[in-house]
Amino acid sequence: MEGTYMNMNVSVLLVNQDFCYAATHSLKYFYTATSGIPNFPEFVTVGLVDGLPISYYDSNIRRETPRQDWMAETQGFEYWERQTQESISAEHSFKANIDIAKVRFNQSGGVHTLQRMLGCEWDEETGATDGYDQDGYDGEDFISLDLKNLRWIAPVQQAFITKQKWDYNKAQLEYLENYYTHICIDWLKKYVDYGKSTLKRTVPPSVSLLQKSPSSPVTCHATGFYPRSVMVFWRRDGEQVYEDVEHGEVLHNEDGTFQNSVHLTVKPEDLDSRRYECVVQLSGVQEDFVTRLERSVVKTNHGNTGRTNPGAEGSGSSGLIIGAVVGVLLLVAIVCGVVIWKKKKDAKKGFAPANTSDDGSNSSGNSYDTVNSQEALILSQ
């Protein structure tokens, strides 16, 4: 039933999210403004709980809409109307701030993006909480909140004026500290309770070994699993392989499950060595899902590399599988390449603060203060 409210616009926006254990729950919001991209909404917001989309708004539909049945069933008309008005307010501010950003970076036309990520995490077992704040422009980090020391970090010169202004606003910093440690966490706990039948389930993966050509890396593709907390890796002679391995991102499927891939560069003779195996470890499931690398089970665009005949049913389906994977990755590259800025390997994960309204008890995790929404955005003048 959860798939009722899923759509591709939501699924393609969700990348670059870190592994977290089942006991750790997260509430995250993505705000993205774009300019110069034809046939793509100028403003999009997506809300997620534990990596699962719960709400969606864009400048074409101009309505905040549920993306899970349990969100539609537990939140009434007033909730969605309030979220709609807040997203409309944010849309106006974000569009204005792209123009300000162009001035800051001495730009005129072209394709540009401005994104905010916000959210919090709660460890159900230990009770520990955390909050994140990060803003990006044109695919690069712009400014982020150091919640522990209540100060802003500006990695680029163009953000320094914003850092000075926000560091001086002590009342705002104190409010953000309260937002991340209380308001956001309270809403996260509510959402986890509302969607517990979905969020706390486990669905095992379907695992395939794929290869485009005899000289291409072998891809271990796991799909259809839930939750998103997963580790997919290669082993050789029982030991994990780190060299000649490339890890993919955890991506959404339209039915609310996830997919992930890991690529291994091997010599052709290794396909018959029986030394390699792909291992999938899913949070909440004790057993590992292990697939041994053998020539006969590797699916390719030109038929199975082993004993299966090129015209057999297995080889025909392999092309569809590889084509589907490539198609999803291409769509992700087209869309996410312009809305998600790149993530540094050693950087702390971050999601940016929403300025909630004064009535915190009635505001969901992504509420904007209608008076200060322009001031809250990253490029306030």
Rank of each mutant, 00 (worst) to 15 (best):
V232S: 13
D141Y: 14
T305M: 11
D272S: 10
E64R: 03
N149C: 01
K348Q: 08
V207R: 10
V207D: 12
S361A: 12
T4V: 12
D146H: 03
A159F: 04
Y79Q: 04
E269Q: 13
Q281R: 09
K189H: 09
D141A: 13
Y79H: 15
T24C: 09
L330V: 06
R228W: 06
L48M: 12
I98K: 03
G303E: 05
D138E: 08
G109K: 06
G319Y: 10
L176R: 02
A222C: 12
N106R: 13
D186H: 10
N39W: 04
Y21S: 14
G327F: 07
S357V: 09
C336D: 15
Q374S: 11
V338H: 12
S357W: 06
F289A: 04
V232W: 00
T113K: 01
S93W: 02
W234C: 01
P38E: 14
T291Y: 03
N97W: 03
G306W: 06
K344C: 01
V203P: 01
V325I: 06
L282M: 05
L264I: 14
S108I: 10
V49Q: 14
D18M: 02
G224C: 08
L379H: 09
C120F: 08
V44W: 01
D133N: 09
V338R: 14
Q83Y: 05
S89A: 15
F77K: 15
K28L: 10
G238M: 01
R67W: 04
A222Y: 06
V280D: 01
S89P: 00
D270P: 00
L330E: 13
V250P: 05
G131Y: 02
R307I: 10
D346H: 15
F289W: 10
P204N: 01
A347R: 04
V156K: 13
P38N: 09
Q75F: 11
D272T: 11
Q134K: 13
S229A: 15
G327N: 04
W122H: 11
W122M: 02
S35M: 14
D369M: 00
E254P: 03
